[in-house]
Amino acid sequence: MKPAPFDYYAPTSLAEAAGLLARLDNAKLIAGGQSLGPMMNFRYVIADHLVDLGGIPEIAGIALAGETLRIGATTPQRELEFSDVVAQRCPLLKAALKHVGHRQTRNRGTFGGSVAHFDPASEQPMMCAAHDAVIEIASVRGTRRVPFAEFGVDFMTTALEPDEILAAIELPLWPQGHGWGFHEFARRHGDFAIVAAAALLALGPDGRIARASLTLAGVAVVPLRLREAEAALIGHAPEMAPIEAAADLAGAIAPLADIHASADYRRHLARILTGRALADAAARAAGRSVP
C-alpha cells in the first residue's frame, strides 16, 4: 500500500528538530525508516508531519569517550557493523548487528531508531540492556539521561515523551579481554529473533568470573536481563558446570507465546542459546578462539 499524505521536514540541527516536534500535531520522527516505512505503507501509522532526523550531524556517528562508546541515534547499523572501534572494543555489538535485518536495511536502518521503536525481538534494545546503556534524550525542555532499565517501559513502549527525541546511546565498555557470546534462532537469517541470547563475562585476577551479563530477546515484552543466572556465575571458574547451571536458570523463565513459537519452545531455546553464548564467552575470556 501507499502511505497517507504527510508534510515533510528536514531540520539540520537537534534544536530545530525538537522545536518542530514540540510545535506540530501528530508528527512522527523518521531516521532510517526501515520500521516506520512499513508501518506507514500499511497505514498502521498515519502521521500528518514527518520530521527527518537524517540531516542532523550532531546525532550521527560513533565516538569513544574514555570507556564509553557514544552512538549517535542516527548512526546506520551498517556503520556500526563495519566500525573498527566497535570490532575492537564492543565485539558483542558487532556480532549482534549481523542478525539485524539484511544488508539493504542495515544500510539505512539506524541504531537509535531501533532502540526508540523498541521491538522486543530486536537485537539493538537487547544490546542496550546487555551493556547497561544510558539513553540521551533531547527536547525543547533540555536534555536528560535515562538508564536503559528505566527507558524500556512495556511492549514497544519507552520512556520517550511525544515531544522528545532519542539523541544518543552510551554503552559503557567492558574491559579489554572480556569474553562475549551471541546466539540467535530465527526462521530466516535477518528475521526478528524467536529467541536471542547474549553473554558478557569478565574474569578476575584469580581467573574466576568477576562480572557477568546475560540477556535474552524475543522472550518478554522488553529485553530480559537474567540477574539470578548472572549472580550464580560469580566466583566460579569459567567451566561447563556453572555455565550449565546458569543456562538451566535461563530455561526456567516464563516466556511469551505467539504464532512463531510456544512458551515451551522458547524456554528450550533460552536454555540452549544461553548455554552456547556463555560457552563462547568463557572460551574468549580464557583467551581461546571461537570458530
Binding site: G37, P38, R78, Q104, N107, R108
Partner: peptide, 27 residues
C-alpha cells in the same frame, strides 16, 4: 511487497543498496 520484505525494489543510493519502497523520494 511495499513493506521491505521481498527486496525486489532494491536500488543503490550513493552506491549503497536500499529498499526503494522504504525510502521517500524527498529523502
Amino acid at each position: 511487497c511495499e513493506h521491505g520484505v521481498c527486496g525486489a525494489c532494491t536500488v543503490l543510493v550513493d552506491g549503497r543498496s536500499a529498499r526503494s519502497c522504504l525510502t521517500f523520494a524527498v529523502q
